[in-house]
Design a protein around this nucleic acid. Structure first.
Lengths: 138, 138
DNA sequence: ATCCTACATTGGACTTTGTCTAAGTCAAGA
DNA sequence: TCTTGACTTAGACAAAGTCCAATGTAGGAT
């Protein structure tokens, strides 16, 4: 993740404590926090960081293609730092836990030409839904 | 759609003008309105209908499995009356237009056992993204 | 090392989307 | 037609996100 900050500095990003903290919070696998969760965790590291800055920074990271925006439940958007490896999501219908998964096959090719309505189709997002081990035993 | 109302009456639904109007607004193919759009169109037919009733009615129709809730953009949820034929969505990245599409293949089977993390996987939602004919020429 | 300034941050007001509640209304069975 | 419990209403409230004017600061220039 520190190479992320270097990469962004190369693109003219000003390196502030706030941005460093947001990047740090988002580091890891299977991380999918809401903006408010990012803000809460960032506040632990840098108490005076504002909500607006967290939103701004997340928005910039999305624009730059460094993180992904995910909305699996129609409520708050979540942010996924795993933007450099194509993947899909598996979501627990009960507790909302999200895992990154890698389906086999070419998902885009599954949409036949006669079902494309003249669109130039360029991407596909898949959400698998089920019950996680934790919730199925409880 | 009128058989929908009959079906619901059979399930103990009280048949009110408001519910009739919401059902009427949702009738058609490739219909994916937000709650506020449904409210606006319903207001044309029945000026005194309230927002709360539209939300209530949409929620009930979803619970009864008569319509689907779709969130393709992380903003307002949309409602899809085509609940009785499995399908996925194709969304224009520019204007937001949504079409119902039918991919080939077994999408659920594309998730290998070793990528399921012990989940009981039961459903899959797919959103194809691209540019619609209208937006690509404009 | 310090200065400058364009870019970043802040807090709070505002918007959008959706939920809840208490009071009034009405569909449909008796 | 009467009655009653389900339905509807307006408006307050809540959650998620955006916007703005004022203030602060990273990092290049000196």
């Amino acid at each position: 993740m520190s190479d992320l900050l270097e990469r962004l500095r190369g693109r003219g990003w000003r390196l502030t404590a706030q941005r460093r903290v947001v990047a740090e919070v988002l580091d890891g696998d299977h991380v999918h926090y809401t903006a408010d969760e990012v803000h809460a965790k960032a506040t632990d590291l840098l108490p005076e960081i504002s909500r607006a800055t967290v939103y701004n920074t997340l928005g910039e990271l999305v624009s730059l293609g460094e993180i992904l925006e995910v909305s699996t439940d129609g409520r708050a958007k979540r942010y996924d730092p795993n933007a450099h490896h194509a993947h899909q999501h598996l979501v627990c219908s009960r507790c909302g836990t999200i895992r990154d998964v890698h389906p086999s096959g070419d998902l885009l090719a599954d949409l036949p030409a006669h079902e494309r309505f003249g669109f130039q189709v360029s991407a596909v997002e898949v959400t698998y839904r089920g019950i996680c081990p934790n919730c199925s035993t409880a």
